Simulated assay, not measured.
Amino acid sequence: MQIPLSGELTGEGHRLVQRVYYEDTDFSGVVYHARYLHFMERARTDYLRLLGVEQAAMAVAGDTEGLVFVVHRMEIDFKGPARMDDILTIETQTEKAGGAKMILRQTIRRDDMPLIAARVIIAVINGKGRPRRLPETLAERFTGMA
């Protein structure tokens, strides 16, 4: 069975499979530490997409009703290296969704070997950059996955 391009929703959250390319590595052939942020961002974006959240439609610049997700804080533990051509699995789980923030847990694995463990705090803001409560119906999409 082939996993769709945007990954798949699971009973715990979301799973995305990505290959490591040459562009993801440093001169030694190991994934450059900042590239893991790209993998995690893709997974979070696809998680939202599969939950039916259309970020472009929600983000209205200068609008107090607009809704935008921004990374407020990230804690990352680097547990092992990935290398060119590795197949990585990025998993995203919602720990909390409500108020003006979401807390997501993300892991990156190669086979059964954990490479990255991250906790990502997402702030919910309006189009003017001010905190905004996550609408209850939207929070339920995230918490309904847990």
Rank of each mutant, 00 (worst) to 15 (best):
I125L: 09
R19S: 09
M113P: 01
M40K: 06
Q106C: 12
F27A: 06
G80Q: 02
G52C: 12
E91Q: 15
E41V: 12
R105P: 05
D63A: 09
T137V: 08
T25L: 07
P81F: 06
M102Q: 11
M102H: 02
V120S: 03
R110Y: 04
R73F: 00
Q18R: 09
R19Q: 07
T92F: 10
Y21E: 05
V60G: 00
M84L: 13
L115S: 05
G52M: 11
V60N: 00
Q106G: 13
G52V: 09
F69W: 03
Q93Y: 01
V60K: 15
Y22L: 13
L16S: 01
T25H: 08
K79C: 08
L16Y: 04
Y36A: 08
E54M: 07
Q55G: 04
A57L: 13
D85E: 09
A118K: 03
E23F: 01
A117E: 08
A61P: 13
H38F: 02
G98L: 13
T64H: 01
F69M: 02
V30I: 11
M40S: 02
K128I: 13
D85I: 05
V68A: 00
T92H: 10
V124W: 02
R19I: 10
H38R: 15
P81T: 06
T94H: 05
G98D: 10
G80H: 02
R105S: 06
D111N: 10
I90N: 03
A59D: 06
T137G: 15
D85L: 06
L37Q: 07
L67G: 01
Q106S: 11
G62V: 10
K101V: 02
P131L: 12
R35T: 14
A123Y: 01
T64C: 00
T94V: 14
E91P: 01
H38A: 10
L88Q: 00
Y21G: 00
D86N: 14
T94Y: 05
R35P: 07
T94W: 01
D77E: 11
M74F: 03
L88W: 01
G129L: 10
R73E: 12
R105D: 03
I122F: 02
A43N: 06
A34W: 07
Q55M: 10
E65G: 12
A61R: 15
L51F: 06
F78G: 03
L16H: 06
L50R: 15
E54T: 12
